[in-house]
C-alpha cells in the first residue's frame, strides 16, 4: 500500500493517472452531455426527446456511439488522406491537456502549474488548426468555407477571451488556477463574477464563439454550409469532432467557473460537487441559448468582436489596472 502511494508520488505516474482519469471523465461527460442536450432540446420544444433506448432513453448516447464506431471510414476522392484523418485527432487530443491544470477540488488537480491559465488557452487554440485542416483536407467547397469561417472566428474571439482572463489575473495576481480559486473562497461576494461582471460576460460570449456553439455556430452553419468543416466526415471522424465540441464546452465552462464562479468553493458539499455543479449550470445555459436563438451572420459576428467586445474588454482591463493601482 505504501509502495503504491510512493508510486503516486512520482510526478510522471501522477500525471499519467490524471490524464487517464481526465480522458475517462471526458468520454463519460460526452455521453452525458449528448443526452442532456437532446433532452433539453426536447423539453424546450415540448417533446420527450430520446426515449426508446433504455429507461427514458438513457442508453441512447451509448447506442449512437456504438453506431459511430461501427461505421465505415470513408475518405472522399481527391481528399488529402493524412490531413483528413489528422484533423479529428488534432481536434480531440488537446482537450485532455486543457483539463489537466484545472482544480476540481482543493486537492483534486492533475497538474498544479503557475501558468495554468496560459496552458489552457494555448492548447485550446489548437482546435482551430484542426478545423482548418479538416476543411482543407476534405476537398469540399462547403468544408473549405466552414474552415475559413472557423479561422477568422477563432482568431478574433481569442483576443477578448484573453483580455477578460487578464482582468481576473490582475485582480488575483496569479495565473495559477489554484490560487485564483483560493482568492475567491471568502464567501459569495468574493467571486470574480461580482468584481468583474463585464469580464465574465465577455468571457462567456467569447467562449460560445470559441466552442462554435449557437448562436455562433458559423463554421458548421447547417442551413448555409450543410455541415461546414465536417461535411465529409462520417463514422468516428465525425464522432471525434462531436466529442471534441462537447469536451471544449466542458473546458471553457470549467475555466469560467474557476475564474469567475469560485471554482470548487461552496458550503456544505465537497469541492468537486460544487465544481461539477457550476460547470453543468454554465453548460445548461449554453444549451438554452442554442435552442432559443437564430444564428448571427458572419460579418456581424466579427463586428461584435472587433467593435464591441475588444474595446469593451480593453476598457475593462484598463479600469481594472487603474483601480488595482489606486487601491494599492
Amino acid at each position: 500500500m505504501t509502495q503504491l502511494l510512493q508510486l503516486f508520488a512520482n510526478p510522471l505516474v501522477y500525471l499519467l493517472v490524471a490524464l487517464i482519469a481526465i480522458l475517462t471523465f471526458i468520454a463519460l461527460n460526452g455521453l452525458i452531455l449528448v443526452y442532456v442536450e437532446r433532452k433539453v432540446a426536447g423539453f424546450i420544444q415540448r417533446r420527450p426527446g430520446p426515449f426508446e433506448v433504455g429507461p427514458h432513453g438513457l442508453l441512447q448516447p451509448l447506442a449512437d456511439a456504438l453506431k459511430l464506431v461501427g461505421k465505415q471510414l470513408v475518405v472522399p476522392r481527391d481528399a488529402d488522406r493524412i490531413l483528413f484523418w489528422a484533423a479529428p485527432l488534432l481536434s480531440f487530443a488537446p482537450v485532455a491537456v486543457c483539463l489537466l491544470p484545472i482544480p476540481f477540488g482543493p486537492h483534486l488537480v492533475g497538474l498544479n502549474v503557475n501558468l495554468g491559465v496560459l496552458l489552457v488557452l494555448a492548447f485550446s487554440g489548437l482546435n482551430v488548426l484542426a478545423l482548418c485542416l479538416a476543411g482543407w483536407g476534405s476537398n469540399n467547397k462547403y468544408a473549405l468555407l466552414g474552415a475559413a469561417r472557423a479561422v477568422a472566428q477563432s482568431v478574433a474571439y481569442e483576443i477578448p477571451l484573453l483580455l477578460s482572463v487578464l482582468c481576473v489575473a490582475f485582480t488575483s495576481g496569479s495565473l495559477n488556477f489554484a490560487e485564483i480559486t483560493a482568492s475567491q473562497t471568502h464567501g459569495l461576494l468574493s467571486w470574480n463574477v461580482f468584481t468583474q461582471p463585464v469580464a465574465f460576460l465577455i468571457f462567456f460570449v467569447s467562449a460560445l464563439a470559441e466552442t462554435n456553439r449557437a448562436p455562433f455556430d458559423l463554421p458548421e452553419a447547417e442551413s448555409e454550409l450543410t455541415a461546414g468543416f465536417h461535411t465529409e466526415y462520417s463514422g468516428m471522424g465525425f464522432g471525434l469532432f462531436f466529442l471534441a465540441e462537447y469536451s471544449y464546452m466542458i473546458v471553457v465552462c470549467a475555466v469560467a467557473s474557476v475564474l469567475f464562479l469560485g471554482g470548487w468553493s461552496g458550503p456544505f458539499l465537497s469541492g468537486h460537487w460544487w465544481m461539477l455543479g457550476k460547470i453543468y449550470a454554465l453548460i445548461l445555459a449554453m444549451m438554452w441559448f442554442r435552442w432559443t436563438y437564430p444564428r448571427v451572420r458572419f460579418d456581424q459576428l466579427l463586428n461584435l468582436c472587433w467593435k464591441w467586445l475588444i474595446p469593451l474588454s480593453l476598457i475593462n482591463l484598463m479600469a481594472t489596472a487603474l483601480i488595482i493601482n489606486l487601491v494599492r
Binding site: A41, R47, S223, T292
Partner: peptide, 16 residues
C-alpha cells in the same frame, strides 16, 4: 424561415 436563420425551436412551436 427561422430554421434557415439557425433557430431550431420556433418551427416546433409553429407545428404545435
Amino acid at each position: 424561415y427561422v430554421l434557415d436563420l439557425g433557430g431550431f425551436t420556433p418551427i416546433l412551436y409553429a407545428f404545435d
